[in-house]
């Protein structure tokens, strides 16, 4: 059993609103002194894969990350959680990547790593919330795609994937190879590495694959989204002013509140 987990390193999503700034020119968030972390759902994806391997008692896990030099930290974290291999894809060689391009790069890497039974992605990245890479990757690889999975188990030759739906839960059975996107759940909260593994991970070399290794030319990565114009990025004005709903008595205040609830479309 070979599992591949795709990780993205992002700007700390818990950065308090007061410290968050965007660069309107570059159209990206200003990093400042904020940390870089593994995108939360990718951590759930990694945990889901680790649990699947734990339960099976065997199997290999490879972590993939399309990212700049700093992304080795994310991969190192994955190594400290005992994935077997960690590979960085050199984002610097592929400027202006979008979801399609990322999916194509990942697909090229997965092909190089074949056989790969299940490929795990987070349901969406915690910065741009694209939510498309998993599905696009499945399409590239021509494999079935299962979304919002929170737990995976072997079921004979197949895999039983427990996933969230709008109404509750369902179990999807699917044969390998397949691609799944993972959502968060009590059951797949990321674990913390043992210190020994942490220190071992520091000594590991992390290979970086670029255009040459993957046999992919940067120019071939543009997908349909390249036609979209990224017009602007801005911080919406927040009116964290508490509006006191007044009134002579409880009834009047209640009427005000009902109006407010209708305004914010929950009523």
């Amino acid at each position: 059993m070979h599992l591949v987990v795709c990780l993205k390193q992002i700007l700390d999503p818990e950065l308090p609103p007061g410290e968050f700034r965007v660069d309107a020119q570059k159209k990206e968030a200003v990093r400042g002194s904020a940390s870089l972390v593994i995108s939360v759902f990718d951590e759930n994806a990694l945990e889901t894969a680790l649990q699947l391997r734990d339960a099976a008692g065997q199997g290999k896990i490879t972590a993939l990350c399309v990212g700049p030099e700093s992304a080795v930290d994310a991969l190192r974290r994955a190594l400290s959680l005992r994935v077997d291999e960690a590979i960085r894809i050199r984002e610097e060689e592929f400027p202006a990547l979008d979801g399609f391009g990322t999916a194509r790069l990942l697909a090229a890497a997965v092909r190089k790593l074949e056989p790969a039974d299940l490929v795990f992605c987070g349901r969406e990245a915690g910065d741009w919330h694209g939510a498309m890479v998993g599905g696009l990757l499945a399409g590239e690889l021509q494999r079935p795609f299962v979304s919002l999975v929170a737990g995976a188990q072997r079921a004979g030759e197949k895999y039983a994937l427990r996933r969230q739906t709008d109404e509750g839960w369902e179990t999807v059975e699917c044969a390998a190879p397949a691609v799944v996107s993972v959502t968060n759940d009590d059951a797949n909260q990321p674990r913390i590495p043992k210190v020994k593994d942490n220190m071992m991970a520091f000594r590991r070399q992390i290979p970086a694959w670029g255009a040459a290794e993957l046999g992919v030319a940067a120019a071939s990565l543009a997908g349909p989204n390249a036609a979209l114009e990224f017009a602007s990025l801005y911080v919406p004005k927040s009116e964290r002013q508490c509006q006191v709903l007044g009134g002579e008595n409880a009834e009047e205040k209640a009427a005000q509140m009902a109006k407010k609830l209708a305004e914010i479309q929950v009523l």
Binding site: E14, P16, P17, G18, I192
Partner: peptide
């Protein structure tokens, strides 16, 4: 708490203040 310490060097996960 530990994950917050690791990622943000403070022990308050979800802190809204800077």
């Amino acid at each position: 708490m530990v994950r917050s310490l690791e990622a943000r060097a403070h022990p308050y996960p979800g802190a809204q203040a800077s």
